[in-house]
Structures are given as C-alpha cells and as structure tokens.
Simulated assay, not measured.
Amino acid sequence: MEILHSKILGEGQPFLILHGFLGMSDNWKTLGTEYAEKGYQVHLIDQRNHGKSFHSPDFDYQLLAEDVVRYMNHHHIPSAIVLGHSMGGKTAMQLATSEPDRVSKLIVADIAPKFYPPHHDFIFNGLSHLDFDQIASRREADEELSKYIKDFGIRAFLLKNLYWVEQGKLGFRFNFEVLRNKMDEIGDNISATAVYEGPTLFLRGDRSEYIMPTDASDIKKHFPNAQIETIDRAGHWLHAENPEQFFEKSMAFLNS
C-alpha cells in the first residue's frame, strides 16, 4: 500500500496537519514551522489525490482516515495531535472518532460535523478551461482562470498546485477528474453515532459560514469535550488570513 507524502519539521511530540480540498501540505509550511519551533515534530501531509501523494479513483473519508493510520504506522507514531482544515478537518474527525487512541488532541479548522452540499462548481468550471497544450506559464494560467474566478486569493491558492509535468508542459498536482466526480463525498458527514471524547478545539473564521452558531449542539454531540473559538478578520482560509491569532489560540489549547 502506498504511504502519503509529507514534509517533516522539528523534533518532539508528533503533530499531524491535514490540508483542505484542492490544497497541499505546503499551505501549512509557515504555521508548521512555528509549531516545530515550540517543540513538536510536525508532519505536513498531502492527502490522497493531492500534492505529491498517490492518485486513486477511490475517495471518501473512511479511506482518507485509513491513509493517515497507515502513515502513522509507517512512521512508528502511536498517537499524535491532529489538526485538519476543511476537508482535512473531516478526515481528522473521522480519524479521531474511528481510532480515538491514535489522536491525543484534535484541532478542526472551519468545518463542522455535517453534510455540505457541493459548492465548488465555479472552481471546477474555471479549472476545466485551462488547456495546458496552449498555456505555457503561470501568468497565462492566471489570466485564463481570472475569466471564471474573480477572487485573486482563490486563484493564487489553486495555482500553487501547478507544476512542470515535463519541459514546457504544466499540469496540476491534484487529481482533477476524480475530485470533480467526488463532490458528494467531499461534502459528506461523519457517522451519526461517531464520538471522540478527547480534548478538541474547533476554530471558525468570523467571516466564514462553514461553522454557524446552530452547529454548536452537533459539535458537542460528536465531540463532548470540544471548545469553539472564533478567529477575527478571517474567512474560510483562517490560518492564512489571520495566522497570528490562529497560532495563539491553537497553542493556548495545546498548552492547556
């Protein structure tokens, strides 16, 4: 079985970080370095069909959680702090509820234990118009994508996935076709009976609608020892939009 690709920073207590949908481990390099400086061994992990990890036609949260267990076994990690953002947060919740002994503390960034209807159509529409037989540079890719996606931040996030497949030919690291066809699985919820009783922190962006006040009871049902904190001046990419407060609140939780 294939092992997830990762970048490992620092020495100390293992701390796994799982990126969001269409993201990659590099998105967490800055914060990962800060956690490593506080005495953690930080594992920035690419989930399947993302970054430099393997591509597979199979994609659901049970499989994503099993990938992390296999990764932990490979690296001889009995248990770890696990932080997941968005899709990675769902993977982290699935892991914590199905393998609670492997997760010492859980941090979930801007995602709730509920079903999210598919809402990335405009992104896939834009990406599908990128013809890499015609596009020869990142600037050209950005110009084409800007016709469909106006938000510069979203475009920059997506274009981080570009790499040179061969000389003169760009491509995406993520598995475009599989991810486009698995939109329902990406919005999926953890099991209705899933519970993790370990210490848990949910962080939400004050400008994001992914975690609403009405989600608190659901969060407490699945994660009875959860606390919910808000990151100011931040939307869904809260770790990039207010990294200082994200770091401060997550460290307060880890030190408590």
Rank of each mutant, 00 (worst) to 15 (best):
Y148R: 07
T200C: 03
S208C: 07
G205M: 00
P213Q: 01
G153P: 10
F115G: 12
P78H: 13
T97S: 03
K169A: 06
S86A: 07
W164A: 12
T214P: 10
L203H: 03
K147R: 13
F124M: 04
F223M: 00
S191G: 06
S98H: 14
A92P: 05
S79I: 06
H119L: 07
L179D: 01
F202H: 02
K160G: 10
V195T: 07
K160P: 05
F174H: 04
I135N: 10
K150Q: 14
A194D: 03
I77H: 03
S104G: 06
G187P: 03
V108D: 07
A216F: 14
F223N: 04
S98M: 13
K150I: 12
R102A: 11
K220P: 05
K160V: 09
L130G: 00
I154N: 04
P213Y: 04
I190K: 06
D218G: 15
E143M: 10
A109T: 10
E143G: 07
F176N: 03
K147S: 13
H129K: 09
R204L: 06
N175F: 02
A96I: 06
K147T: 11
L170I: 01
L95E: 06
D218E: 15
T193F: 12
P224C: 08
A192H: 13
F122W: 13
V178E: 02
F223C: 04
D101H: 15
A80C: 05
N189C: 14
E99Q: 14
D142E: 13
D121E: 11
L95G: 03
V103R: 06
Q94F: 06
G153V: 12
A216G: 12
E143R: 09
L127N: 04
N189P: 02
D101L: 15
F172W: 10
E140T: 02
E177S: 12
L106T: 07
E197R: 15
E177M: 11
